[in-house]
Design a binder for these strands. Structure first.
Lengths: 216, 216
DNA sequence: ACCTGAACACCGTTCAAGT
DNA sequence: ACCTGAACACCGTTCAAGT
């Protein structure tokens, strides 16, 4: 009668999947392997999750749910910039801590509670600041696209092997005739986080302009 | 002695893969299936392509190579904005015509001739316009991230089934208490191409500000 | 109700064998 | 040199069977 404390639940399955993906990457996440980390046959998982796609959706939603929401700033409308910037920076950091989530999030349109929490946070903050519903909608897409696009760049492991032989040739300068522009810029060392901060400012400034323009 | 006109080449393999992915999606692209569209066993493909990953890299590079390069504008430096905008718009259109390329491009760091052509085009145009190498480098990342992030949004087929049940509930207004912000904005019909055009302007304006700031 | 084992219809890739 | 067939080590998922 005593229900074993190790009873499977949907939540334990998702958590174990997150742990496995963090440790060994997405390509190691098979139902059989996931089952074995839970001490159970693969087929048992199907009692708690309809199929692997649903599991992947739940994993992404758990990550997006960690992006947070803009703080309230005690009714200071002008501070929507701080709030939105902060969420964009947090989202980027969270994605980099779970790089597998980036390609998944880019490919799956699933909307769950985690994504809604984030979207609601941004939308509400912008509406409070005087954005029209239409402009808030567009701003959410802009914020979203920026987070995903920039995070994808940072997450792709730039190993020489994965990037291919041309990058080494570029770096050595031997392709200077054919690609003079990139040859001149490729050695600019870039602090990705700093670049992202510049991008976030650029976006928030842009949204600010859209807001002002819409007021006239 | 007559070499059969149907001889396999790396190029024919890649072309067939593009056609297959366009027609049936990435999940239908298996080596066995690809072989059969070429009238050949799967294993023959390995004489022209080292493995499937290399094939995927070649496919993405073929698509990125279609993004084009900024026109020269007869030495009119101020027109870097037109040139960069045009490439961003073309890139988006090309990606939407081959949606499978978006998730691939987001996941693979491979740099081939197609990507170099695009990167060289943008870099050169910016350097000509007076961007420092450092700023041109950063601008390329910004342009790249914007293209990928926004295209990913547009490419995810937003079928009700794939997005999950919460979107329908939101649309019906039944989650208005929990998510008042998105409930207020979700019905803003958005023309995605128009939104992207706004985003491109926002980015180009931002780059312009960075250029001006760097001059002081 | 929950878990299992065998099975089905696939994968990418190897390797020795054919021409 | 190029193509093949069989095989290996996997997949996600079904289904009937166990408790």
């Amino acid at each position: 009668m005593v229900r074993p404390q190790s009873a499977l639940t949907r939540d334990r399955v998702v958590q174990a999947a997150l742990t496995l993906a963090d440790a060994d990457g997405l390509e190691s996440l098979s139902m059989r392997r996931l089952g074995s980390t839970l001490g159970v046959e693969a087929m048992s998982l199907y009692h708690h999750v309809p199929n692997k796609d649903a599991l992947l959706d739940a994993m992404v939603d758990a990550i997006v749910g960690q992006w947070g929401v803009p703080a309230d700033h005690a009714g200071n409308e002008a501070d929507w910039r701080t709030g939105v910037s902060r969420v964009m920076l947090t989202a980027h950091a969270v994605l980099l801590a779970h790089p597998w989530a980036i390609e998944l999030a880019g490919a799956r349109p699933f909307v769950g509670p985690g994504r809604l929490r984030y979207a609601e946070g941004i939308s509400m903050r912008l509406l409070d600041a005087g954005f029209t519903p239409r402009l808030a909608h567009q701003a959410l897409h802009i914020v979203d696209g920026t987070i995903m696009g920039f995070s994808a760049q940072a997450a792709r492991r730039p190993t020489s092997a994965a990037m291919g032989p041309m990058v080494d040739e570029l770096a050595s300068g031997s392709l200077g005739d054919q690609y003079p522009g990139i040859t001149r810029t490729i050695h600019e060392h870039h602090d990705h986080d700093e670049e992202y901060a510049v991008m976030v400012d650029l976006i928030v400034d842009g949204l600010s302009s859209l807001l002002v323009a819409a007021r006239d």
